[in-house]
Structures are given as structure tokens and as C-alpha cells.
Amino acid sequence: MDWDKLKVFFAVAEAGNFTKAAVKLSLSQSAISRQISSLEESLGAPLFYRHARGLFLTEQGEQLFKTAREVVVDLSMTEALITDKGDKIQGKLKITSSIGFGAIWLTPKIPEFLRRYPDLNLSFIFSDDVVDLSIHEADIALSSVFVPSESMYGRPFFKAPMGIYASREYLLAHGVPLKIEDLDQHQLVVFGDNSKIPSTDVNWLLSCGRAEGGTRVPYITINNLYGIGRAVEAGAGIACIPPYIASHCHGLIQVLPEVETPLVTFNFVCADILKGSPKIEALYQYLKEFS
């Protein structure tokens, strides 16, 4: 089977249409369409259903995609290992994290890291969607959610207590909560998308100080921690947010500082096969300096 055609098929199957695959592969849509048609002809079977909403894999296409995925992942991992031989810190490194943590906490620290290791080429994917390390969409994930498995290796590198914050304007208008139960009378701003929740304690503010099973009704829900911080900065209410978010929102005042809040923990995660990589270890040790 022609390897070039297989790569094109895999990109189209992942993207779901020719347009996105063309951008990813830097090919024209017509060239991609010809490659797919040629592959289908050589196999004697259709690989996609063409539909107005995009391309959908046929049963034969599903079988080929499963095999192609394994081949692409194996080759990608092998390439990463081959280019990582020796003690020199060099080569490409792709890192993913949530938008807030990546943009606010991580990016200011990267210039110094690259000054130490000028032969590295870094790229970043900041997304609140999960980036799949198992198919090598990235080398490293900095994640507050990590489930150990045989194929993934993770270790914590950042821990800090969350804080309860409000703006001066909000507190002047609504009063300062003096005990945790006073939150019953306040406007609470919390995380609002359970499918992308960054940690199990992110909405701790709704249940702290309440009888077991009791919960407060949020005033606003927002599916991004930085968005929560900016809403609180504008006077929307009270939120429990990580320190790296609070420090980048102007004029926030910490309330109930004596209350023990949950820790926000970020893990440094990579495929188990890459855990001995010198460049990955160099990044881990560097980021640990800020924990």
C-alpha cells in the first residue's frame, strides 16, 4: 500500500473533510481528493460516505483507519525517540495545556527555558479540550486531570491552594462574608461545563460549609477559569480560583482567607515510552523550579 496515500487517508479521516486535511498537509483539496479516489480504487472498496455535512468512514474505512492510526502513532513515537538520542537537549517538543494555565502561567516562563536550551524547537496547543497523547498529538500535557494508565506517565509539578476572591466594588455593594455560611447570601461565579471540568474541586464554593448533599445555586457559570476571574474582576460576584488566575486579574480582594481551600494540582504527563527523554526531563525540572 502506498504510504503517501495512507497518510492522506489518515489526515482526511481525522479531519472529517478535505478542507481541513488540505491545510494540515499543505496540499490542494483536488490533490487530496485524487489520492483518496486512487486509494479506494486500488483497494476496490469505498472508504468514505460523502455527505453535505462532511465525510464519514465506511465499514472498510473504519478498519483501515484503525490500522493506519497504529502505524502513524508507532512511526511518530519512533521518530521522537530516534531524534532524542544522546545527552544533548535538542529537537522538537510539543506541549499542551488548558488555555488559562498555558497562556497565564506557562508562556512567561518559556523564554528563559529556551535561553538555556537554544537547540529546542517548542510548539504549544492551548485548549480546554483533551489533546490525545496516545496518538502523539503532543509530547507533553500539563494537566490538572490525570488518570494513571500503563501507556501514560505522569507526576505532579505544580500545587497551590485556591483562593476565594471578589472585587472591591462587589464587596462594597453586597458586604464582606465573615464566615463560610455567609456565602449563602452572595453571588457565586463557578465553572459551568461538566464535560470539561478542570478538577473535581473546581466548584467547591457551591458546597463548602453546607450540610452533606446541600449545594448553593450559582449566579453565573462560565466554562473557563480565566473568564471566571475576569467576571469577578468586573464585580459579578465571588469565586474560588487558582492563584495564577487571581494574580492576573486587577484589584481582586481575597475573602475568608482563614478557610482551607482545595489545592489546584497540575501534572506533567507524557507517553510512558517517552519518559526517559532528556528534553522532556529538562522541561520537567525547569517547571519544578516554579512550584
Results as ranks from 00 to 15, higher is better:
205 L>R: 09
209 G>D: 06
53 R>A: 10
138 A>V: 01
29 Q>F: 11
214 G>A: 08
254 Q>K: 15
250 H>A: 14
185 Q>E: 12
36 I>P: 10
209 G>P: 04
27 L>E: 11
209 G>C: 05
226 Y>K: 08
59 E>T: 09
267 N>T: 07
164 I>W: 05
94 K>R: 06
43 L>M: 10
122 L>Q: 03
92 K>W: 03
86 G>I: 08
93 L>K: 00
115 R>P: 04
179 K>I: 09
17 N>R: 10
215 T>E: 06
84 D>K: 08
286 Y>E: 05
210 R>L: 05
144 S>P: 12
222 I>Y: 00
275 K>D: 06
266 F>D: 06
136 H>R: 13
252 L>P: 11
81 L>F: 03
89 I>M: 02
76 S>T: 13
26 S>L: 11
258 E>C: 11
197 I>S: 15
135 I>C: 14
187 Q>Y: 15
99 I>E: 13
287 L>C: 09
11 A>S: 14
239 A>M: 09
58 T>N: 06
176 V>S: 04
166 A>V: 13
90 Q>G: 03
260 E>F: 07
118 P>T: 01
7 K>G: 07
155 R>L: 02
291 S>K: 10
261 T>Y: 02
147 V>C: 02
152 M>P: 00
106 L>A: 12
47 L>I: 08
28 S>K: 14
272 D>V: 01
137 E>P: 03
142 L>E: 00
144 S>G: 15
23 V>H: 11
262 P>V: 14
234 A>S: 15
10 F>C: 09
18 F>W: 08
146 F>D: 01
284 Y>H: 13
77 M>C: 03
12 V>W: 04
194 N>T: 12
76 S>E: 08
46 P>A: 07
83 T>G: 05
63 Q>P: 02
103 A>Q: 15
142 L>D: 01
192 G>Y: 00
78 T>G: 04
251 G>N: 15
61 G>L: 06
47 L>H: 10
212 E>Q: 12
25 L>T: 09
198 P>F: 14
169 E>G: 04
209 G>F: 06
126 F>N: 13
